[in-house]
Amino acid sequence: MTIGKDHIIKSYDDELARLTGELVRMGELAVSQLEAAIDVVERRDERAAQHVVNNDDAIDHLEQEISHDVVRLLALRAPMASDLRNVFAALRIAADIERIGDYAANVAKRSIPLSMVAPVTATGGLAHLAELAAEEVRGVLAAYRDRDAERAYQVWKDDAQLDEAWTGYFRQLLTYMMEDPRNITPCTHLLFMAKNIERIGDHATNIAENVWFQVNGEPLDKQRKKSDRTSEPQVPGAGLGEPRK
């Protein structure tokens, strides 16, 4: 008995739809992690912060499952052309979401020593950065789910807003540190946390580029405005980052 072509196509489509659903769920979990991290920063709750850090294992586990699903699809279906783009896009997007989860966990991890020093007014600025980053990630997840290249392109462009907000916050924190040396320790933690959030936006743009390629079969080669000016010579203290866990 032979399996009909229509059955094979439907079976592949079902598997791809399931894979897409898993990725969207993984992305939503990563955004929830970011929002939970900001919440524990504001509440100065060490125990809750550690809980957010520990929850990153769930995102890592989902990435492993998706990687296995991709390998199985490649082995069993041998996809070609646009189907192959769909499968490889899923693999790359999973890696970006995993990094988003890592950066959210890093924010929560930094909140623990931050809660041990006197609070500073500038802490509130993190929430605005996180809101912009979460909006980017949710927007690009919707673009991926709907195969909407134009929406992905809009997210890609909108990352300039997060860059601008990061630059402004960077300079604000430097001002706080110069005005009062007692602010140096908490503001240093805030700088690293803010940079992690800015990097989440960069991974959202990576996903947007993958969605564009997935839909159109060509790279997104437009010029994007970059508004992160923290590496310019007149701004001291550039090059902040957080090592991979």
Rank of each mutant, 00 (worst) to 15 (best):
Y12F: 15
L23H: 02
R77Q: 13
A37N: 05
H61M: 09
V40W: 08
A49G: 06
A94M: 05
Q33N: 07
S32F: 01
L62V: 03
D45I: 01
A49D: 04
A81F: 06
A78M: 13
V71A: 15
A17Q: 14
L16D: 01
L29S: 14
L34E: 04
M26W: 00
H61S: 15
D14W: 01
V24D: 06
H7R: 06
A94S: 12
Q33D: 11
D14N: 15
Q64E: 14
R85F: 04
A81P: 01
V53H: 00
A78D: 08
D102L: 13
E15Q: 12
A95C: 10
V71M: 14
R47V: 12
Q64Y: 05
A95G: 13
D57W: 08
I97V: 11
D57I: 12
G101N: 05
R25S: 15
S67K: 06
A17D: 15
A90P: 05
L19D: 07
I93H: 00
L29P: 02
Q64M: 09
G21S: 11
R92T: 02
V71K: 05
A48T: 04
V31F: 00
G27A: 05
P79C: 09
L23V: 12
H61I: 06
N86M: 12
D13L: 14
I38V: 11
V70W: 08
D96V: 05
I93T: 00
S67G: 12
G101V: 02
A95E: 01
S82R: 14
V41M: 10
K10M: 11
R47E: 15
Y103H: 15
N55T: 10
L19P: 10
S67Y: 06
N86I: 07
L73G: 13
D102E: 14
A37G: 11
D57P: 00
N86E: 10
F88C: 06
E35T: 12
E63H: 13
R99E: 11
I97H: 05
V70D: 08
E35Y: 03
L91N: 03
V71I: 10
E28A: 05
E98Q: 12
L23G: 11
R44N: 02
S32G: 15
L76K: 08
R43F: 04
A49P: 00
V52E: 07
L19G: 07
A75T: 08
A48V: 00
I8K: 11
R43E: 12
A36P: 03
Y103Q: 15
E28G: 09
V52F: 03
L34S: 01
A75R: 07
L74A: 07
A30E: 01
R77E: 15
G21M: 10
R25I: 06
D69G: 06
G101W: 00
A90M: 09
A81Q: 04
L19A: 14
G21W: 06
E42V: 13
D39R: 10
S67M: 08
E63P: 07
I93L: 03
V40I: 12
E65A: 15
R85E: 00
K10D: 12
V52H: 07
R18K: 13
A89D: 04
E28K: 11
L74C: 10
D13P: 02
D60H: 06
D69S: 12
A17N: 11
V31P: 04
L19H: 12
R43A: 15
R44G: 04
V41T: 09
A75L: 10
